[in-house]
Amino acid sequence: MSFKNKNPRDVEADLVLSDGPQLTRGEKFRRGLRAQSGWLFVAPALILMAVFTFYPIIMAFIHAFQEDYNGANGTYSGWGFSNFVHVVKGDLNRGGADFLQCLVNTLIFTFISVPVSTLLALLISVALNSIKAVQKAYQTILFLPYLTNALAMGAVFATFFTVVGTKSHTETVGIVNLVLGLKDNPINWTDVLSSPKWELGRITIPWANYIVLMVYEVWSGLPFKILILFSALQSINKQYYDAAKVDGASRWTTLWHITAPMVSPQISYLLVTGIMGGMKQYSAVVGIFGEKMGLRYEMGTMVGYIYNYIGEDKYAGLAFAGSLILFVIIMIITWINNKVTKKRTTYR
């Protein structure tokens, strides 16, 4: 409200008016509108999120509980938990993905590759932090994988590990077999059929394939983790290291009792986000093992399972139920993560 060009008595009148009940209807409306104007500013984001996030989440919830939901025409026969029962039992998988297999795969991939790559990233960051010359060059090299496409990296990995040709006539055995000295009797690391495996009832563990995927996971997870840890290391006061030196701490003690605790907030951040990302693994597996994640999802992941069924109109309900289960699992793991890391990183 502008007091400009008004005589003092009018200003006084305005002030009396704005005191409360004497407001005109127009004024009231304008003020009400003004109070709500914040919505205008968040509207673009809100609309996009409503369309692409909230609506799908709600629909997934609804479809998960619809029996015999048909993705093609949207019909269903009733409400219940039968989708979840089918998911867990795996009785509808007709040569497609098995939920239990995908769940076990995802958990193993995640809980091995994330801690290993975080630990490696810590060691590399410490090493990087302790060199002075060509530090920048190393930093760049280590960060490059972060900028590379996952499918392209998967394809490169496949050539490292894949044996091309037939048993009687091999074209190439791949660089890994050469390095390991398996030239004459190569393991076809990326081939699910010929991979050595362990059979555990419903679940198959093709461990040679597992190794390939986890090497890839560790390697591709390094750049971001190194970036975070390296910058955290550089902000540690050098005096702690001087103190540790005077106190007679060995390098090992310094690393585990000084450095690691100092960057523990960053470590826990990397573990939490790494595990969340690992649970949603999809593209790398497809990049290395093909669209079917093996012959029939032996290397399948949870997201792979969901993607497999979302396209099948008759069984789309399985995908929705599966995604809800994944959601709950991630929530539980994150909750445990928070509990553990809060205890471990109390000093900040």
């Binding site: 006061n237 005096q239 702690y240 001087d242 103190a243 540790a244 030196k245 005077v246 106190d247 007679g248 701490a249 009792h257 000084i258 605790p261 100092m262 523990s264 109390t346 000093y347 900040r348």
Partner: peptide, 29 residues
């Protein structure tokens, strides 16, 4: 080397390890 000289050093900013208790700090050497 510093750790073999048998010296105790008190830093200007104390350089106490923030994640250790007082007891652990004192016991660290």
């Amino acid at each position: 080397a510093a750790e073999k000289r048998g010296i105790g050093l008190v830093f200007q900013n104390y350089a106490l390890y923030p994640h250790m208790t007082v007891r652990e700090n004192i016991r660290f050497p």
